[in-house]
């Protein structure tokens, strides 16, 4: 069924023959990838496997990098970084509205902050927010632009485990409501299975595993099928440990 919809609608992202090199090292080796509109894709890989290189290529942030291939992305792309990257000298609302114009921008910014649970913190300085709150403000900044593609580079990597679980729920909910295609780069297999419609594993510069996750939301870590996916993905990542069920 997924292939049917992919054939009917134009993909949100189409990458073909993408090559990226740093010196002698080929990080992305003739990589092909389609992402359907509204599809939530998680990208796994060991560190140095080129996950971030692919994301930065899609975000248009890879200057002075040698390579070839073609990339098609939608017009409205938002990026969430591992750090919240809020400008410390602007209040939270101004950070959310960075670069936006128009009369209703402030209202949309307030609505986006309310959506991520930061209503009433519009006038706060970024240093006054906790790490989780800062990252939520960064999410609001991305979503207020109504992106067709949301690129997230380990957005919860710096957060503690409890905050991360709460952020998973929030991200999932926001993506269902706004419906952007998502490419989430992560090193956390569980995070990928909990959130994504489809999990990719990047090995040696190519997509080695392309696994649709066919589990209803909300997903339980104790679901045997969850564990099955987990085992399969960890194996693809080269983790040899015994996984007890």
């Amino acid at each position: 069924m997924a292939t049917d919809t992919q054939q009917l609608t134009r993909p949100a992202v189409r990458v073909s023959g993408l090559v990226r090199r740093f010196g002698d090292r080929t990080v992305l080796d003739s990589l092909d990838l389609d992402i359907a509109p509204g599809q939530f894709v998680a990208l796994l890989g060991r560190s140095g496997s080129g996950k971030s290189t692919l994301l930065r290529a899609l975000a248009g942030l890879d200057y002075d990098v040698a390579g070839s291939g073609s990339i098609e992305v939608p017009g409205r792309v938002s990026v969430v970084f591992q750090d919240s990257r809020l400008l410390p000298w602007q209040r939270v609302l101004d950070n959310v509205l960075l670069g936006l114009g128009g009369r209703d921008a402030a209202d949309r910014g307030r609505a986006a902050l309310a959506e991520v649970g930061l209503a009433g913190r519009e006038r706060a300085w970024p240093v006054e927010l906790s790490g989780g709150e800062q990252q939520r403000a960064a999410l609001a900044r991305s979503l207020v632009r109504e992106p067709e593609l949301l690129l997230a580079d380990e957005p919860f990597g710096a957060l503690d485990a409890l905050t991360r679980i709460r952020m998973h729920g929030l991200l999932r909910e926001l993506c269902q409501r706004h419906g952007p295609a998502v490419l989430l780069v992560t090193h956390d297999v569980d995070e990928a299975i909990v959130l994504a419609d489809r999990v990719l594993v990047l090995v040696d510069g190519r997509i080695a595993v392309d696994q649709p996750i066919d589990l209803p939301q909300p997903r339980s870590h104790r679901d045997p099928r969850f564990l099955e996916y987990r085992y399969q993905l960890l194996t693809a990542l080269g983790v040899e440990e015994e996984i007890t069920v």
Partner: peptide, 27 residues
């Protein structure tokens, strides 16, 4: 440079980049 990247991803124009990022950062 992280703020420069951010400014690029949110599509700031050069003059807005200078006003919102460079000048306050240099204060």
């Amino acid at each position: 440079s992280r703020y420069v990247e951010l400014a690029e991803t949110v599509g700031l124009s050069r003059s807005r980049f200078i006003r919102a990022v460079v000048l306050p950062g240099a204060l």
